[in-house]
Nucleic acid binder design. Structure first.
Length: 278
DNA sequence: ACAGGATCCTGGGGGC
DNA sequence: TGCCCCCAGGATCCTG
């Protein structure tokens, strides 16, 4: 579910409510997450204060004193929310953190359990983890030369390239389709076939789309909520995603849906031509 | 190197 | 009402 704008929204919601809080207790469900949660590791955060909450790609990084890092991925249906301790426990709640001198709790729910939580106890270990996954650069400081070279070096289609977290971090299925529409590029075009102008258009479209989506607190289609439990609003601004058969906002032609990289892919066949000159 | 499919899960919606 | 199939903001592994 959550892509960069949704994760960024969670992080912005959580930061002011978590920083300074000292972890008191953690408990969880018996059902395992995709990556096994090590209770020993989770216990490392107890007794220490949250110093910051950050985002890297689609990863949430809760920075805890003593250089301990709680790293959470929301998968498709993950929710990381602050609630009152007496609030009823919803189904599929897998982790509950409580704090000293606070009635609030940090709860992690995940219906499909594609999400994960882990703890690292040094900056080096955290870096090593991101390095091992090959996580690419953030989309807002994509170096133009790096971007052109990565595109030129591959014959993969643009949809697959955008979904590849090693090339650019944070883009998922919704924002890949929206970005390609804004850049007026067919999702099946090959990376190496893009001109310098097209490569630049795509790079700028990604930043534009993600920035606007963050402003609208992300997209809530079914499960997503921010760190305070609020839904996002960007779904009302989708130009192509989920709009199969509906008229293109730019030219009126019906939006098409195909499958690329194993994912639903939406585009306007007139505005996004396979060949140049849309 | 790359595409495509299957896999991990649960739940909602549509068709019959 | 029930059942069956398809679909879903992700990522990874295996095959050809």
């Amino acid at each position: 579910m959550p892509e960069l704008p949704e994760v960024e929204t969670v992080v912005r919601d959580l930061r002011p409510r978590l920083v300074g809080r000292r972890f008191r207790h953690v408990e969880g469900s018996s059902q395992p997450l995709r990556t096994e949660v090590s209770w020993d590791r989770l216990g490392l955060v107890l007794g220490h204060c949250v110093e910051d909450v950050r985002r890297r790609g689609k990863w949430i990084v809760v920075c805890v004193a003593r250089e301990i890092y709680l790293v959470i991925h929301l998968g498709m249906t993950g929710q990381l929310v602050i609630t009152q301790g007496e609030a009823p426990q919803l189904p599929h709640t897998h982790l509950i953190f409580s704090f000293h001198q606070s009635t609030e709790q940090l709860r992690f729910r995940d219906i499909r359990r594609f999400g994960s939580a882990r703890v690292f106890d040094s900056p080096e270990e955290l870096e090593q983890f991101f390095k091992k996954t090959g996580l690419g650069p953030e989309p807002f400081d994509l170096d133009p030369k790096y971007w052109r070279e990565r595109l030129a070096a591959t014959s993969r289609n643009l949809k697959a390239i955008l979904l590849d977290q090693c090339i650019v971090a944070g883009v998922g299925n919704i924002y890949a389709d929206e970005s390609l529409f804004v850049a007026r590029l067919h999702p099946a075009r090959r990376g190496r076939d893009l001109s310098a102008v097209e490569a630049r258009r795509l790079r700028e479209a990604i930043a534009t789309v993600l920035t606007r989506a963050i402003e609208k607190r992300g997209s809530s289609i079914r499960n997503y909520v921010g760190g305070s439990g609020l839904k996002g609003e960007y779904q009302h601004e989708f130009l192509v995603y989920g709009r199969k058969g509906q008229p293109c906002v730019r030219c009126g032609r019906a939006i098409e849906r195909i499958v690329l990289a194993g994912r639903s892919t939406h585009f306007c066949p007139r505005c996004q031509k396979r060949k140049d000159e849309g």
